[in-house]
Design a binder for these strands. Sequence first.
DNA 1: TATAGGTTTTGTGTATACGCTAATTGACTT
DNA 2: AAGTCAATTAGCGTATACACAAAACCTATA
Lengths: 243, 243
Amino acid sequence: MAGLFKVAADAEDDGGLLSDRIRNALTDEIASGTLVAGSALEEQQLADRFGASRTPVREALRQLAISGLVEVRGRRGLVVARMTPERIMDMFETSAEVEAMCVRLATYRMTPLERSRLIELHEGSLTMVEASNVDAYDTFNREFHECIYRATHNSFLAEQAQDVRSRLSAFRRTQLRQGDRIRRSRDEHEAIMQAIAEGDGDTASRRMRAHMLNAAAALGRYIDDRFGKDGSRSISDGSLSDQ
Amino acid sequence: MAGLFKVAADAEDDGGLLSDRIRNALTDEIASGTLVAGSALEEQQLADRFGASRTPVREALRQLAISGLVEVRGRRGLVVARMTPERIMDMFETSAEVEAMCVRLATYRMTPLERSRLIELHEGSLTMVEASNVDAYDTFNREFHECIYRATHNSFLAEQAQDVRSRLSAFRRTQLRQGDRIRRSRDEHEAIMQAIAEGDGDTASRRMRAHMLNAAAALGRYIDDRFGKDGSRSISDGSLSDQ
DNA sequence: TATAGGTTTTGTGTATACGCTAATTGACTT
DNA sequence: AAGTCAATTAGCGTATACACAAAACCTATA
């Protein structure tokens, strides 16, 4: 069973479409490692296991293929994609770069209303940190970043950023519980907010990149434990030190 | 018919999978405007038109939905996505930002072999410019950018960049034929190459962004003609002027 | 005449059946 | 004994059939 990760998909565990439920279930099983990387995925077998027919299974697999969670191998079936530590770090780095890109544009284009909304959100996160309320902070964090996406006033970019972010959600899950990561996370947000307030998009961008890479690093040991010991590569040769 | 755009998919017009052929055909028809935005797409009707059954049509439509070319509306069918000028410019801007991000990382991480390969490609493009060989330059251009993607040494980022680029291919088609765009394109490549040679990732990044936005601007009038007259917004408030 | 409720219709979601490609295995030849 | 070719088969790609849900339409009543 995929008990390790009970993702947001559980909200509508039985109401939605069958193909979507299968997709979510497979996503969880792959992210949690229940389905080991490289193993073959046969449609009929999965259909039997879910008590469904091949049709919705196929739809689910095709979506997973586009998400990159499974690899298509010509005519001869699909296999669970190998989520190597390198691959995961690549995804985190990409996410960091995308977030940095977004906050830069957002700094230049944000309306006063959007700015005050972001400030309001940020200030509200203080009590969560003091209460060590991880779940509340996690929700806030998502809103914080989505607020920045919207402030770019580029809906396509916002969708892309959201997509990358959602693909990492399964791995980011445990990040905030590592040590005093929450407090440091909020401190980094603070620094980003300051750069935004000064209208300095490039600085906000650099700080956001560092922020995201710190979050990734907080996951480093966890990922190493799960997937191997080789997750230590320099993931940003650029100006990482900041603030 | 979708005669306007004979895309690269034509290379294997009959050999590939039926669902892929349908997907390509629909992509062309949407990009070319043959299928007007907002119109409903019924599976059986499309199946009849392509002489196939609903199954491959469904697969194609699901892929298009993920690509953003069609919008899913609950249970009541799909509609052709509205490709407004704003949307297209958003996509071009995103592409520009992604390319800028890639070339920055590539500058820091590129191996000597990759650098020499890029130089070789760039120098080879000179004869194409002098011969005004648009098709050859278009092929070179794709290789040039893909070479940069790979040089980031981040396969996930490379895939994302490739994905964004491919989504724009239908619109970028005519770009190089506008005026002396080819020569200016190569000049911009030249400036980027220089920054790469100096190991200045930030400069390479800025120049790449400007390069991509120039390419988008070259398409501006074309897009305006096709989709309306409102495609003129400031698409980069940041440091656009460069070199 | 307008509205409410039921009926028909339309189209997606899912199940099942068939064909075809290609991988595997076995036998036959060298 | 090893390699090659043919036969078998496993599994995907596609076609067709059925179920169900939502929207449109028609009818009956106020």
